[in-house]
Design a protein around this nucleic acid. Structure first.
Lengths: 330, 330
DNA sequence: TTATAAGTTGATAACGTTGTCAATTTCGGT
DNA sequence: ACCGAAATTGACAACGTTATCAACTTATAA
């Protein structure tokens, strides 16, 4: 910048003014500075700038996801990116892999880079480590899972209601032995979904058979194996509810291999690409990650812009999409 | 940091030394400083630090993808993140949406934040705008598509060979009328794949019927519509080759709806989740985005660490995965 | 005991930028 | 030609940190 100023024959401050498009600069000088910038191909240092500026904004936000490669996470991510880019804000993304240590490591890395805000799909269950960060003025919005020991905005899915709708759907098709595949119980949503399962069975007056419930099943392969186990029981379930997208895929894979996909009903939580083309198509309780991402980003920027109102807790509804697998009658 | 120094009764520099784990600091003082840091919950300012440090590293890289929500892109992204995080490097991710302007906007935003390096899946065809950035010392690696008017490392898929293998596979199953769905011809890989199609037909002595070739088909819905058109021809194709993952999904959707999925052969480029469970399973030419991402990130960090050797151009092979749809005989 | 080396610590400047405020130039009205 | 106001420009300090180098303390050897 010093060189640009010298070449244009002006002061540092004037170059700064041109770069920041401040009004008080004559057209003559402006074009001279612009020329110098191009000749020297000067590159503005955003970090130095935000260090000195009074707003102290980095125009960067941090997004902590479960796994950037998971379809649900990446749909969230994309929507957040679009809202952010409209404001010239960049997105630092990271995957927690449901690991609390990795979550904290990533968040610490985000905050030491002075992100203006955080969008968090938390893996941990105590976010008091973020209190000082909040006090320091970093805005944050939780998505998919609520904050614990911390008051912050959240955008959640109505997990219990969603699962109950799915289970009710199976019950309406005469199923009484409904197997359940649950993700790691450390994941808040997994616990909530499991409760939904129990509640809906209870309200239908169906006794819960613990044999039919497999919890802490994580990832496609584990789901595949658990499904094989369930269907190998002396009294196997006539229907399955899989409570996460990868579990749905794993269960579906097992059902197909066992050639039971036309006999065992299946409803999954969270939609999956291509689910409509399978035979039968997979009936799902669809979440709406795009809406969640957009709402989360919009709320975050409202906070960044200074909104101090009490925490907002938004619940995004789910939607039952019937495609065949959930309509197999007992 | 000033406050920490005051509370611990030491100088700024000593606090800095503790934070950077420099050896020359006594255990007494160190623990006093650590205590002060915790009491004041001091947060290190990475931006200010890298501004002053001699290595001038931001420990951040920029990754430009086609769309963070596309499975191929997000698999790349995830692998890059893992390599980066091992080194304490964070990833700024962005989606170009095949839009040159958006690509340049994002890259400019990355570089003004002084990323240490860039991993680029380019949408544009002239990367000379990056020359000055290179000169300024930013490392860069191109993935999936080569740089143009710029000498830089690249990690590519052998598109032509992959497509030729797929087309040869269809020809081996007696197909002569093979429809082709190509993505936007502005995308380098789309053009290469199309050439592979033409070459393999030529080398098998099959005349190319322009009616069977639909180019510039982008996204699931367009692919669906194009497939319907192709199969509505007076002499429809007996097999289809779809040259991108979303196109494969769109075509598959159309085939199922038309109930032609057991009669019309289909081979797709790039693998798709659940493709194994369809009936028939979708035969694909699989790329290996994880390997590409890992190699790209490793090469980038080699450059960041000072490797000045001539540009490396790595080609990652494809793999034919037969699942049924490509083995339908004519 | 002293000289010397090794280990600690701190004062100051600097990184690239912008906020503050004062200085200078330009312009409209007399 | 001159005044005052408005527009333009610049000098300097500061943002939070680390590099440099000098000063101090302690340990070691003669």
């Amino acid at each position: 910048m010093r060189e640009v100023a010298a070449l244009a024959g002006v002061s540092l401050k004037t170059v700064s003014r041109v770069i920041n498009a401040e009004p008080a600069v004559s057209e003559t000088v402006r074009s001279r500075v612009v020329g110098a910038i191009q000749r020297l191909d000067y590159r503005h240092n955003h970090a130095a700038s935000s260090l000195r500026r009074s707003d102290r904004k980095s125009s960067t936000i941090g997004v902590l996801l479960e796994d950037v490669a998971n379809p649900f996470s990446s749909a969230l991510h994309r929507e957040i990116e679009d809202v952010a880019l409209q404001r010239g804000v960049l997105v630092l993304a990271g995957s927690s892999d449901e690991d609390q240590a990795r979550e904290q490591q990533l968040i610490a890395a985000f905050t030491s880079r002075r992100v203006d805000g955080l969008i968090i799909v938390p893996a941990s269950h105590d976010h008091s480590y973020l209190l000082s960060e909040r006090r320091a003025g970093t805005s944050m919005v939780f998505v998919d899972r609520p904050p614990a020991f911390l008051d912050a905005d959240s955008i959640l899915t109505d997990n219990q209601a969603g699962v109950r709708q799915g289970i009710a759907h199976l019950i309406a098709h005469n199923h009484r032995r409904i197997g359940y595949l649950g993700d790691l119980m450390t994941i808040t949503t997994a616990a909530e979904r499991c409760q939904g399962y129990e509640q809906e069975l209870a309200s239908a007056g169906i006794a819960l058979d613990p044999q039919l419930v497999r919890l802490n099943v994580h990832g496609i392969d584990k789901a595949d194996a658990a499904t094989v186990e369930l269907l190998g029981l002396r009294e196997p379930p006539t229907a399955l509810f899989t409570s996460q997208n990868l579990l749905t895929i794993g269960a579906s894979r097992a059902l197909h291999r066992l050639d039971l996909h036309h006999r065992t009903a299946l409803v999954g939580f969270d939609d999956v690409l291509l689910a409509d083309l399978l035979d039968p198509g997979i009936t799902v309780i669809a979440q709406d990650p795009s809406t969640m991402g957009r709402k989360a980003a919009e709320q975050l920027f409202r906070r960044i812009d200074g909104d101090q109102s009490p925490s907002v807790h938004l619940v995004v509804p789910t939607r039952l999409i019937t495609r065949g697998s959930g309509e197999i009658r007992q």
